[in-house]
């Protein structure tokens, strides 16, 4: 009980700190614009890519509304992945290289794992707002076909929560590895996020990959997350064969849940292992700027 109380206190303080760090640098309005402009711009790149391909003046291909919904929904929820991975990774790198406070936090009698996850909660809030705005923009401005039946809301929320736990666990794994690496502020997190962007069926069906690529895709829990989300929110995208289409939704959920549990366990051990190695190598508070 005392341990839970301590973790709760860590969680609250770290979440407060995360919010201060993220939001304190400017006025609330600018902060809001900043927080949604990035993901909206990332979405607009895709919208323009699609538009250029189907425009007679450029690519001149036939319209493909289902494919557009496919990539739009995937991309909207990918905001969670990008933002959370970036957030957790940045906690460790930023505290170490920028603010140089890592040693003070590290030696405090708290769970550093809990601290890191809680610090990134602000990113979750920001990402959630951006996802909602992106989806609304898609539906009302771009005519993306999204429908969520009232009866499907519990299923949708379940999928969402499981996925977010998985994404956080991925972030922690990345954060753990970053204990051991030099300053790669825009290298490591964006690159790993890029792997997920590519292999998890975010923008295009994984059936486009050769067999080895599909094998990688199926090994990442997030692949099932995007598939499940699309089934609930944009059922017509099931017409696009993804090579997961034949798995029924119940089984899909089971795979998603069990793989996420495994992922959380892995993240715990990877983080602990990296923490141990970093202490052994003496690089917990290294500064590697150049």
């Amino acid at each position: 009980m005392a341990m839970i109380k301590r973790h709760w206190k860590t969680l609250k303080t770290a979440a407060w700190l995360g919010w201060q760090m993220e939001s304190n640098w400017t006025q609330p309005f600018l902060f809001a614009v900043y927080s949604i402009l990035k993901p909206i711009a990332a979405t607009m790149i895709l919208v323009l890519m699609y538009w250029v391909v189907i425009n007679p003046g450029y690519g001149g291909q036939a319209e493909n509304a289902i494919m557009f919904s496919f990539l739009y929904v995937g991309n909207a929820f990918y905001i969670f992945v990008g933002q959370m991975l970036f957030g957790i990774f940045r906690v460790i790198q930023g505290d170490r290289e920028w603010y140089q406070t890592i040693r003070n936090v590290y030696i405090a009698p708290i769970s550093y794992y809990v601290y890191v996850v809680a610090r990134a909660l602000t990113q979750l809030v920001i990402a959630s707002i951006a996802v909602v705005i992106t989806l609304l923009f898609g539906v009302f401005v771009l005519g993306v076909q999204i429908s969520l039946a009232v009866t499907d809301i519990p299923l949708f929320l379940t999928i969402l929560v499981i996925g977010l736990v998985g994404v956080s666990a991925m972030g922690v794994i990345l954060g753990g590895i970053s204990f051991l690496t030099a300053k790669h502020m825009h290298g490591m997190n964006e690159s790993v996020a890029g792997i997920f962007y590519l292999f998890c069926g975010v923008l295009f069906p994984i059936s486009m990959f050769p067999v080895w690529g599909q094998f990688i895709s199926r090994a990442i829990p997030l692949t099932y997350w995007f598939e499940a989300l699309r089934r609930v929110l944009a059922p017509e995208t099931l017409q696009i064969p993804t090579s997961l289409t034949q798995i029924d939704t119940g089984l899909l959920m089971l795979i998603l849940l069990s793989s996420t549990i495994v992922l959380v366990l892995v993240s715990y051990f990877v983080f602990k292992g990296a923490d141990y190695l970093a202490r052994r190598k003496g690089v917990i508070d290294m500064i590697t700027s150049y």
Binding site: M49, V52, G59, M67, E190, S191, L198, L203, F204
Partner: peptide, 22 residues
């Protein structure tokens, strides 16, 4: 980080164009 993985990121965009038969 700086060479191999960004290639994966651009691969995503290539696949979109291919999926849209650009």
């Amino acid at each position: 980080f700086e060479i191999l993985l960004p290639v994966l990121a651009i691969a995503a965009y290539v696949f979109i164009y291919q999926a849209l038969e650009a």
